[in-house]
């Protein structure tokens, strides 16, 4: 029983980090209709900036600068994306993000080399014990931070003018423009937010029991892709739900791998995708994705 509780908590903690990443995917998709394959590299950039800057600036300062820097990088990507002609099909903007990813990742990997960089986070290797379940302090805070950030985001989405414009814009860009919504600014704000969230996710990923930033840190994005898609691309609630589902599935597959050994070893890597494929077969638009209405 204790193991189950512990495993479920691990799943939640994992899901909370996925949520920060998947929310970024979701925002970008809403704004630009592209899946951002450079998101993992943006995350790595955020982590790298914190790692490099935490000594002169302190952790909080470094995180602030990193979030701003990553947001700026995302904004640059958005600007490039705006220039792309979509004439050659809807896949083109997404392919562009692959190009951005190659450039960003090559440079970051070159700088990081084989190092494991610490981020100087304040949580150290401390653990908390709650009701027989032991959790690393950093994991507890990552859950808390994710909940706060996501809550704040949802509130803003629901109740502020920005949220209203965002919803209007993503449901009908032309009509929203006619009503005075400035599409360019809105798109940019989504990208900036996605970038900043990626930097925050990087810090929690690096914190204990993770072991800092290395060149593969950005690969978390590969597990967050299915989270965003199975929930329904472009649906904020879907991204959150998907993150929890994927986090749980992965933690269960790892925690109970001895019982599942008949399926071959290394199952945890496959599980997010298996769950996603099963859901997509039943619901091609994802769990909470809106069925695309088509206008002629």
């Amino acid at each position: 029983m204790n193991t189950l509780a512990q495993t479920l908590f691990n799943g939640m903690a994992l899901g909370s980090v996925y949520a920060l990443v998947a929310l970024g995917f979701c925002l970008v998709f809403k704004a630009s209709g592209a899946v951002n394959f450079a998101h993992g590299s943006l995350l790595l950039l955020g982590g790298y900036l914190v790692a490099v800057l935490h000594e002169p600036l302190g952790f909080a300062g470094a995180l602030a600068v990193a979030a701003a820097g990553t947001a700026a990088a995302a904004a640059v990507e958005a600007l490039v994306l705006r220039r792309v002609a979509r004439a050659n099909g809807p896949a083109v903007p997404t392919i562009l993000t692959i190009g951005v990813d190659i450039l960003l990742l090559t440079e970051l990997a070159r700088r990081i080399g084989g190092d494991v960089l610490g981020t100087g986070d304040p949580w150290g290797a401390e653990v908390l014990t709650i009701g027989g379940v032991t959790v690393a302090q950093a994991r507890f805070y990552s859950l808390l931070a994710a909940a706060l950030l996501v809550g704040a985001f949802l509130a803003a989405f629901r109740w502020t003018g920005w949220g209203l414009s965002m919803r209007a814009y993503s449901s009908d860009a032309e009509a929203a423009a006619l009503m005075g919504v400035r599409g360019d600014r809105l798109r940019m704000s989504a990208w900036l937010l996605a970038g900043a969230l990626a930097a925050v996710a990087a810090v929690f990923l690096a914190a204990f029991p993770g072991t800092g930033i290395d060149r593969t840190t950005g690969q978390i994005a590969l597990a967050a892709f299915p989270a965003a898609v199975l929930g329904g691309l472009g649906s904020v609630g879907g991204a959150l739900l998907g993150s929890v589902v994927v986090g749980m599935a992965e933690a269960l597959a790892t925690g109970y791998q001895q019982q599942l050994s008949g399926l071959g070893s290394g199952l945890a890597e496959v599980v997010p995708y298996a769950v996603m494929v099963l859901i997509l077969i039943v619901r091609p638009q994802g769990l909470l994705g809106a069925k695309e209405s088509t206008r002629v």
């Binding site: 204790n2 495993t7 691990n10 690393a136 933690a251 925690g255 290394g266």
Partner: peptide
């Protein structure tokens, strides 16, 4: 032996330690 496999990209081994402790 209580076997647990990890993939090369795993960074957080909390789940494995949980199982071993149990």
């Amino acid at each position: 032996l209580v076997a647990q496999t990890v993939k090369p990209t795993d960074k957080d081994l909390t789940a494995q330690v949980t199982a071993l402790r149990a």
